[in-house]
Design a protein around this nucleic acid. Structure first.
Lengths: 245, 245
DNA sequence: CGTTTCGTTGAAGAGTGTCAAGGCCAGTGG
DNA sequence: CCACTGGCCTTGACACTCTTCAACGAAACG
């Protein structure tokens, strides 16, 4: 997977960016916003299956997804790949390598994407000037920690159907937060990728999708998913055995 | 589990603390150290099975373990408990709730313990004064993210024996880093707690310990563990099938 | 339109979980 | 000092979920 280097100067600053609320602390007065305008120096386009960064790369920048979505992965000693998370518009990538160390994961585009490039030096500088921004970045970091707690919880204590139900509800919620339909969406990743993320084999993912569809909880057309019964999904996550007559 | 409130004023400041290198950035000149001396305002003793903090508690402090060890846990909707991590001397607790939000996990003492209490206000203040400290805290946070990557990797892609081997090697390494024997130590947690952390049942943990012992890789006496064959453990983590004639 | 990747489904098998019984150990009270 | 108690650990037999292996179908791509 070659790294893509198409870089575009950031024509429009943060001031006019629609994702502003994700990158910049809440409740900032409009005339204060100018301070944040120079944070992102460039944009970068990454095509499907290409890497934004790789484990071991020097980490001197953060990225915010502007368009499209990514997965983060690590490779095991045996060469297998474990998916650790999915990142969509507004999400921040690169937090794991903050503070001048190297990246711990690979970030791979699931589709054609565009990101904001925020040099870590700019982050540091603005943090020391603007305490609100310092809190903001640390909040981002601690949210990432909490997100991973959720992953560990799913992997450590849920059965296959429960994991998939939790996964679908999580996706639904994130689509909704971005203004898309919460009940109908297109998966950006393959069954194998979902399986790796959830600690399951791709066949198991496929089977559970089929079972949910047979029970009228969702409809599945390849990557196109429609959620018909949110309550049922929530019940499954809670560990309630489903009747299957 | 009642919360224990025995608080002692921090008699000796950070200057004389033997854990200094964990709390304060590396490479600080001795005459600069005074700036950090007031970080921890108190110590607190927590007895076995008591909580340092609970999920939902307001988070306005960080803690550094001085003595003993903790587990962090979350509760599922069904009341079950998932263990997320173990923390020993020098480790920082409370990072998940930084930035004025609430704690996302419970921190429970595995034995009688003592922690340094570091008000988050002090952290913020020192961060704005001392850029080196800012980087230090963000490094702590990003290390916590990376640690959780490791947990997800173990839970998502390793079999039972591989998980236990990885767990033992991780413990061994952490004991060694603290000046204890890397080959002989006492587990502070029960089989059930290990199982929860590794996504296994306590019987499976017990069986794998027994199998490793039968193969001469370790010896097990209740909580007392001795590692006899590090290479074998590493081979198991790497997924190599062990001959069992 | 062939080729490749991705997805679905079935049958068989391995690996963990579940249930149950018993042993070991530390602490407690007689 | 001993018996009792309760928590923790070990071990066995069995059930079940998930994986593995395999074949096939569908969509995506050059």
């Amino acid at each position: 997977m070659p790294q893509n280097h198409s870089i575009a100067p950031a024509k429009s600053g943060c001031l006019r960016c629609t994702l502003r609320e994700h990158c910049i602390p809440q409740g900032i007065a409009y005339d204060e916003l100018a301070k944040f305008d120079g944070l992102a120096v460039t944009h970068r386009k990454i095509r499907r299956d290409e890497c934004l960064f790789k484990a071991g790369d020097k980490c001197d920048t953060l990225y915010v997804v502007r368009l499209g979505s990514f997965k983060t992965t690590v490779s095991t000693q045996t060469g297998a790949e474990q998916v650790l998370g999915f990142f969509m518009a507004g999400d921040t990538l690169g937090l794991d390598g903050i503070a001048g160390e190297t990246h711990a994961v690979n970030a791979v585009a699931l589709e054609d994407t565009e990101v904001c490039v925020i040099p870590y030096a700019n982050v540091l500088a603005l943090e020391t000037q603007e305490p609100e921004y310092l809190r903001h970045v640390q909040r981002l970091l601690s949210r990432e920690v909490v997100r991973e707690h959720g992953v560990a919880l799913v992997l450590g204590s849920l059965a296959a159907e429960e994991r998939i139900a939790a996964f679908l509800l999580n996706l639904s919620q994130r689509f909704e937060a971005r203004g898309y339909s919460k009940s109908e969406f297109v998966l950006r990743m393959t069954r194998a990728t979902i399986g790796s993320y959830l600690g399951l084999k791709l066949e198991t993912v496929s089977r559970v999708f089929s079972r949910f569809a047979a029970d009228g909880i969702i409809t599945v057309n390849q990557k196109h998913i429609q959620i018909l019964d949110f309550a049922a999904l929530r019940a499954i996550v809670s560990g309630k055995k489903r009747p299957s007559p």
